[in-house]
Design a protein around this nucleic acid. Structure first.
Length: 1053
RNA sequence: GGGCGGUUAGCUCAGUUGGUUAGAGCGUCACGCUUACACCGUGAAUGUCGGGGGUUCGAGUCCCUCACCGCCCA
């Protein structure tokens, strides 16, 4: 006999059990198969910056849902897990903590030590993130877990960079970046925030000069909020239609402070006639709008800042001043020269670095770029020709618009945490120090040096095809390396020349040194010495994080390694027998599931990288799911303080309840709102979250319960609550939706199992099925079809609704209620049990992807009682729900006429219940019902006599076409059936009359509008025939209902 | 400034290609501890579908416009 079944579903006690069960049985694993088709989802790799939040929970739930569904459908379903190193985000977290706790900067500890500290951080958070995912039930193939800086991913990064470098797609160029002068690094656009600050708005003028550069006496006025940037001005700009300045366009002005002549240009995109004087100064190297104007008008770009924020030599006498001191000095000098006009206070928007909270300076700097022209076009084509499809479709325009700009991709970052750029700049041995006997080769110093490096690499055991060279000028060239070995060898060479250079400086003359700092390469000292180079330096920058994540879909499958499968659990996987069989089997992937904010940053780049490296798309579908907001319509994020830890919800509502709720709001909608409350730990009262709870305030703020007036600390990202302190936890009432559903399912299954005593599996013929059996089987088939097709187009919300409605409103509310009497009768019990077990089995399968834990638990409990089950022939059930086959529909089970007959029964029962409630008839008191209906309907009613007794607490007194209304009856009129309930002594004639009169009025209203419609000639002419016929039928139904009611009224009077 | 999305019951949201009387969950009200389930059951109330205009026999649904909210790009 089965173990006892608790009265309510208790998720906590079973979740961890099934996680280890699934994992230990290897059900999550996906390997190449000759019999199964592949299904692949690559996880949008979470950053190792911190813990998971609601967005991850949503994202992960949907991926798991699809993965479990496809696994049940018979696919070898791979969900590839992993994490992202997240360049600046992670580095700055570690730096910040180091500064706070130890007072150290990255320059104090040095590059290697900092990187080691970040690895420790990464290990900690990676473990935490993967643990969180596992608790959400994520059925990833954990053996294949990757990290963007691990060896498997690194080899793909090296190979891609090298290919691009060799193909001439990578170049060095200048670009305006957001420079954080405090941290001395560029920060990305999404790491910058804008705030309005109190600033000033100065007006100056510049003297106009003639062709000879002599002042014409004219002055031209302009305004600025950053006067110091006039040191880098390269134009003045007016609007092309501005009459005031038309005559001046094309003339020059002389900058009073640096003496440079700059042109007056017309550019309608920069100058605004209405703003200030209508004229603006243009500093392309220090302002994004000016930069764009500079590009359009081919203006020189003059950088006036050093990395530390002081003015450089371009600033002349102002060189060396900090930019804010320089501002004062510039204003003073302009004033003394008579070019100052006025100044006013004004709120001005200022950009701040999110990392240092200091203002960022737009700054021109040298960066590495990838040429996007051809790469972007191929990625555009992949979407426009339908190889990659977006769900919902509208998001494809973000992708196409962004790629269409084909802006080159800046891939360098001034960081230490990341894939270091594998490029060395090499200076050849200078001509002037070349000894006489070497003059013969000096004409071709580049070729000699390149040859020298090749020989060195060969001696180090590297292939010369693993490096390529690019000439910079006659004294220098670059070398890009493709493999770990060649990178290591070049690094050793750099160590050698660095020490050599150091000795040159300190000892005054070059002496022989050895590669003894890198013992592995010591024997190459002589050949290193003879390379005829003067210095070799690796680029200090690392690659943009998105460069490595762009390769994620193929890097994780082992590309470019063709001779072995990627490792499993860090160990070699020999199953490929000398080939990489994983990559061709699992690439391209099936679907990418992510949120819209990284369509450009990530999705587009994966497509172009996949096409570039493998000449094939990385995935066929891209599903963009909603973003989660708090109750105020704000996106949830750690920085806003409104983030919610999904595991808190899992603890409160159960994992399945949480997942089911999440799935219920994941449709084509753009945003999802989750109003949050705190639960008072003293009295359990709910306190709605207010904006003030989210604002950062120092210390440990408390929340006061309006009901019990007690205070408590509350869950908030700004602080960790004190040990032992009572904390007001997070409550999101919407999640009760899923929790309640799980409990309902649990109890439905509990009921079924309590009523399966004596169950015997056997074939069931269609003729043995009662009307409710046929109905539930028909509905089950319909719902199975619906869910299957909805999941195929990622409409998780609709699929969830379809399943909930079926399980709760049809299976529980009607089917279970209807079979209760049959289950108590030994003769009718066997068939009812067989149908019940079948439907429950199918429900568990359909729900498993949504609610894996409860369905697995029930599956095993059901297996104890009914290991063999199913219609029409029983089959042995699979060993676990996770590997059970997804239900297949027998279309013959679906019968719309039968469903219609059943609807009439439901409506009749509803109408009787309504009468009971209207007259306040106590549940214990039975009533009689006379049903006037067709003979066919009468048969249905008679067949369900006992059930109607149970469901409506009503005795059928008479059925059939001849039934007459008994006196003193409450009545109802449905389409196809009229009912009368004699209520002698109970009925209030006046009330009943009023009720029926109201009903009649309503019907007359409907009839009037229906008749009006049919009376409209153009409706009858123009509307489709079936619509007209439908309306006629409606009118007929309304009229017959009205006739019944009028008869009832007549009898009442 | 350009683009995308939203505005439907007190709250959170559905509403397929335009087609009878606009739905659900939560909340509210009334009744009910009926041996699966009070995380429940039965019944009820609740809407100028953001405003205005248009197309159409017919508009929550299509078009234009205005307002507000959110996001992306510049």
């Amino acid at each position: 006999m089965t173990t006892e079944i608790p009265k309510s579903y208790e998720p906590q006690s079973i979740e961890s059990h099934w996680i280890s069960f699934w994992e230990s049985h290897g059900y999550y694993n996906a390997d190449p198969s000759e019999t199964k088709p592949p299904h692949v989802i690559m996880i949008p790799l979470p950053n190792v910056t911190g813990a998971l939040h609601m967005g991850h929970a949503l994202n992960g739930t949907l991926q798991d849902l699809i993965t479990r569904w496809r696994r049940m459908q018979g696919y070898s379903a791979l969900w590839m897990p992993g994490t992202d190193h997240a360049g600046i985000a992670t580095q700055s977290m570690v730096e910040k903590r180091m500064l706070e706790e130890e007072g150290l900067t990255r320059h104090d500890v040095g590059r290697e030590a900092l990187i080691q500290r970040i690895w420790k951080w990464k290990d900690h958070y990676e473990a935490r993130i993967l643990g969180q995912l596992k608790r959400l039930g994520a059925s990833c193939d954990w053996r294949r877990t990757r990290f963007t800086l691990d060896e498997v991913c690194s080899q793909a990064v090296r190979r891609t960079f090298f290919k691009m470098f060799r193909d001439g797609l990578i170049y060095r160029g200048q670009r305006l970046v957001n420079w954080d002068a405090f941290l001395q690094t560029a920060v990305a656009d999404d790491e910058v925030y804008t705030e309005d600050i109190d600033g000033q708005f100065w007006t100056f003028n510049y003297p106009v000069v003639d062709d000879q550069g002599e002042p014409t006496g004219q002055r031209i006025s302009f305004s600025t909020t950053r006067p110091e940037t006039m040191l880098g001005d390269t134009a003045l700009c007016v609007h092309p239609t501005d009459e005031r300045y038309m005559a001046l366009v094309g003339k020059n002005v002389r900058l009073p402070l640096v003496g440079r002549l700059v042109p007056i240009i017309a550019d309608g995109l920069l100058a605004d006639k209405e703003l200030g004087t209508g004229c603006v100064k243009v500093t392309p190297a220090h302002d994004p709008n000016d930069y764009a104007c500079g590009l359009r008008n081919k203006l020189p770009m003059i950088n006036i800042l050093r990395p530390d924020g002081t003015i450089n030599e371009e600033g002349g006498e102002f060189a060396g001043l900090d930019r804010l001191e320089a501002r004062k000095a510039v204003v003073a000098k302009m004033e003394s020269l008579g070019f100052f006009e006025k100044v006013e206070d004004r709120k001005i928007p200022m950009k701040f670095s999110d990392r240092s909270k200091t203002p960022v300076e737009p700054l021109m700097s040298d960066q590495w770029f990838v040429k996007m022209d051809d790469l972007a076009q191929k990625a555009i084509d992949a979407v426009t020709d339908g190889r990659v499809k977006f769900f919902p479709e509208r998001y494809q325009s973000s992708y196409l618009d962004w790629l269409g700009e084909k802006r080159d991709w800046c891939i360098s970052r001034q960081l230490w945490w990341g894939h270091r750029i594998p490029v060395w700049t090499i200076h050849v041995y200078p001509t002037k120090t070349t000894s006489p006997e070497e003059i013969s080769v000096s004409d071709n110093r580049q070729a000699v040096a390149i040859e020298g490096i090749k020989q060195y690499l060969q001696a180090a055991g590297c292939s010369t095809s693993d490096v390529c060279f690019e000439v910079i000028n006659e004294d220098s060239f670059r070398c890009c390396a493709a493999t770990k070995e060649s990178i290591e060898a070049l690094a050793a060479l750099q160590v050698y020349f660095d020490s050599f250079e150091w000795q040159k400086v300190t000892l005054g003359s070059p002496i022989t040194t050895a590669l003894n700092a890198v013992p592995k390469y010591e024997h190459l000292t002589d050949i290193a010495k003879s390379t005829r180079i003067d210095s070799i330096k690796q680029d200090p920058d690392v690659l943009d994080t998105w460069f490595s994540s762009a390769l994620w879909p193929h890097a994780t499958l082992g590309w470019p390694n063709e001779t072995s499968n990627p490792p499993l659990n860090g160990q070699p996987d020999p199953s490929g027998n000398g080939k990489n069989t994983v990559l061709p089997y699992f690439y391209p992937g099936s679907v990418l599931i992510t949120s819209r904010d990284i369509i450009t940053l990530w999705v587009a780049r994966m497509v172009l990288a996949g096409l570039y490296n493998l000449n094939d798309i990385p995935f066929k579908h891209v599903h963009i799911h909603p973003k989660i907001q708090d109750g105020f319509g704000q996106g949830m994020s750690k920085t806003k303080g409104n983030g919610v830890d999904p595991l808190e919800l899992v603890d409160r509502y159960g994992c399945d309840g949480t997942r089911f709720t999440i799935a219920s709001f994941a449709g084509e909608t753009q945003d999802v709102r989750l109003p949050v409350s705190y639960e008072c730990p003293h009295c359990q009262n709910l306190i709605p979250q207010e904006q003030k709870h989210l604002k950062f305030s120092p210390g440990k703020p408390k929340i006061k319960c309006p009901k019990c007036k007690k205070e408590s600390q509350y869950a908030c990202p700004w602080y960790t609550p004190d040990e032992g302190e009572l904390v007001a936890g997070i409550v999101i009432e919407r999640f009760e939706f899923g929790r309640n559903f799980c409990n309902k399912l649990w109890n439905a299954a509990r009921f079924a199992m309590l009523n399966l005593e004596g169950y015997t599996p056997a074939a069931v013929a269609k003729s043995e099925l009662a009307i409710e059996d046929q109905w539930i089987v028909s509905r089950l088939a319909t719902v199975t079809n619906e869910v299957t097709s909805l999941l195929g187009v990622y409409k998780f919300d609709a699929a969830t609704r379809a399943l909930r409605d079926f399980v709760w409103n049809e299976f529980c509310d009607w089917y279970l209620e209807l079979i209760k009497s049959r289950l108590r009768d030994e003769t009718t019990k066997p068939v009812a049990q067989r149908v019940l077990v079948h439907v429950l089995d199918q429900i568990l399968r359909l729900l498993h992807p949504f609610t894996p834990f409860i369905t697995e638990e029930l599956w095993h409990r059901l297996a104890e009682i009914a290991p063999s089950r199913g219609l029409p022939e029983p089959q042995p059930a699979e060993a676990a729900c996770i590997i059970a086959a997804w239900p297949k529909v027998n279309e013959a089970d679906i019968s719309p006429p039968l469903e219609q007959r059943f609807t009439r029964l439901q409506e009749t029962i509803g109408a009787i219940r309504n009468i009971r409630a209207t007259y306040g008839i106590s549940p214990g008191q039975s009533i009689a019902v006379h049903l006037k209906c067709s003979a066919e309907a009468a048969a249905d009613f008679e067949a369900l006599r006992i059930q109607i007794q149970n469901l409506a607490k009503a005795e059928i007194a008479a059925t059939g076409p001849e039934v007459q209304r008994p006196p003193a009856s409450a009545s109802f009129a449905l389409v196809g059936a009229e009912g009368f309930v004699p209520l002698e002594g109970l009925i209030d004639k006046a009330a009943e009359l009023a009720k029926q009169t109201k009903e009649a009025e309503k019907l007359r209203g409907f009839i009037a509008s229906t008749e009006k419609k049919l009376g409209n000639a153009s409706f009858v002419d123009k509307a489709p025939a079936e619509v007209v016929a439908e309306v006629r039928q409606t009118l007929a139904n309304q009229k017959s209902q009205l006739a019944s009611i009028e008869e009832i009224i007549r009898q009442l009077q």
